[in-house]
Design a protein around this nucleic acid. Structure first.
Lengths: 218, 218
DNA sequence: TTGGAGTAAGTAAGCACTTACTTATCATAC
DNA sequence: GTATGATAAGTAAGTGCTTACTTACTCCAA
C-alpha cells in the first residue's frame, strides 16, 4: 500500500533506470538541504534504501551524480519559461495590459518558487560552491528572462507610455522583489514574522510598485 | 615589508590574542568561500601559517571556531546600521527629503555589500546550512531595518504624501532590489554581462522606482 | 626557570570508492 | 508448465586516504 503511494520506497529489485532515477532524486533532495560537501554518498544510499555500492554502479563518482542533475528532466521542469503554456500572460501581453503582465509574471514566479523550494536551495548552494549548475541556469533561464521582460518594457517605451530608462534595471528591480521575497520565506523568515502575506497580495503590490515606477502616468 | 602590509602573515611567535584573531579571520575567509563542511581545519591552519594543533589550542572544535565568528568585532562591523554615523541620511530624514532618504539607504547598502563580499557569502552559506549566524543577523539587523524604513514610510503616509499600503511590503520590495543586485554582482554575473551599472546609477534608479511606487504624486 | 607559543607525529572515525560475491528475473529449451 | 542459464540488481566487507582532534614534546622570552 504505502509502497505504491511512495514509489521511491519500493523494496526489492528495480529496473536499472528506475533505480538510477530514484537515487538521483534522493541526491537532489540531500544536496539541496546540505550542499555538495555536506552530503555523503553513504547517506544518499541510506535514504534511497540501497547499498552504497549501488550508488556507484549508477554514478561513477559523487561529482558525476551532482552533474547528472543538469541532465535530469525534473531539473529542466524547474527551468520552464513563464511565457510557455500561460495563455493569461499571452493575452495580457497581446492586449498591452501592463498590470496583468507584471501581476501574472510575479504570481507565477512566486508560486513556482514556493512549490520548488529545493530547487531554489540547490541553485544557491551551487552558486556559492561555483558549480556549473548555477552558471547554466543563469545563461539558459535568467538571461532569457531579462530579454523577455526587458523587451516588453522597451516596446512600451516606444509606445510612449513608459519612461525612458534602462529596461534591464527595471527587470533587476522587479526580479529582485520576487526572489528576495521567496528567499525570505524559504531561508530567513520561515514563520513569517516580518511579513506574512499571500502570493496574490505580494504579486499585486510588487506589480503596482514596479509599474508606478516605470509608467509615465498611472 | 609584505609582512607589515598583511599583518596576518606574521611569522614566528605572536601573542595568544593576536594569533587567535588571525586564525579566526582566516577561518571566516575560508568558510565564506567554501562553507562550513567544505572547509578543513588543516587548510585553515595552512593558510594561517600555523600547525593544526594551534587552531585547536585556540578553538576547541571546528564548530566553536564557526560560532566565534558571531562574537567577532569585525562581524559586528558588518552589522552596522545605516542610520549610525551617516549625517547625510540623518539630514534627509529630518527634512523629509524622500528621494535622498532612499537614495542614501540604497547607495550605502550597495557600497557596503560590494566591499564585504565575504560577509554576504558567509551569510548565505549560514542561512542554507541553518547556522545561528543567519538567524542572529536576521533578528538583530534585518528586523530593525524593517522597523526603521517601515517607520519612515508610515510617517510619510500619515503626512498624506505616501499611498496607504503595508509599509513592510515596500521595504521588502526595496531591500529586494538592493540585495538581489549585489547578489547578481557577486554570485551570478561577476563579469556584468546582464547589467553593468555603477552603484550610483543603481541607487538612483532603485530609489526612483520605489518612490514612484509609493508616493501619491511625484 | 617557568609558562606560554609552537609543533611533529600521532589516533579513531569517516570519507569516497572497490571488490568479490549473492540473489532475483526472465527468455528460452525441453 | 517447469528446469536452466545468462544477465542484471543487489550487497557485505573491505581499500586507502582524509577528517577532526590529541598527545607529548621543544623552544624561547621574561
Amino acid at each position: 500500500m504505502i509502497k505504491d503511494l511512495f514509489n521511491c520506497d519500493h523494496v526489492g529489485k528495480m529496473t536499472g533506470d528506475k533505480r538510477r532515477e530514484q537515487i538521483l532524486h534522493t541526491a537532489v533532495s540531500l544536496f539541496s538541504q546540505r550542499g555538495f560537501s555536506g552530503t555523503t554518498t553513504k547517506e544518499i544510499a541510506r535514504v534511497a534504501g540501497v547499498s552504497e555500492a549501488m550508488v556507484f554502479r549508477h554514478f561513477s563518482t559523487k561529482s558525476e551524480l551532482y552533474d547528472a542533475i543538469l541532465g535530469d528532466k525534473s531539473c529542466h521542469d524547474g527551468i520552464r519559461f513563464p511565457w510557455e503554456e500561460n495563455p493569461v500572460l499571452h493575452e495580457a501581453i497581446k492586449n498591452k495590459d501592463d498590470y496583468n503582465v507584471f501581476f501574472n509574471l510575479a504570481l507565477n514566479a512566486l508560486i513556482k518558487q514556493q512549490a520548488d523550494e529545493n530547487f531554489l536551495r540547490l541553485l544557491f548552494y551551487s552558486a556559492l560552491e561555483e558549480h556549473e549548475l548555477a552558471d547554466r541556469f543563469f545563461n539558459e533561464f535568467v538571461a532569457r528572462l531579462y530579454e523577455f521582460i526587458g523587451g516588453y518594457i522597451k516596446l512600451r517605451q516606444n509606445d510612449g507610455v513608459m519612461r525612458e530608462m534602462n529596461p534591464r534595471i527595471v527587470v533587476r528591480a522587479f526580479l529582485g522583489m520576487l526572489i528576495h521575497h521567496s528567499l525570505n520565506n524559504i531561508l530567513w523568515d520561515r514563520n513569517r514574522r516580518l511579513l506574512d502575506i499571500t502570493n496574490e497580495e505580494a504579486a499585486k503590490n510588487f506589480a503596482e510598485i514596479i509599474l508606478r515606477g516605470v509608467l509615465k502616468k498611472v
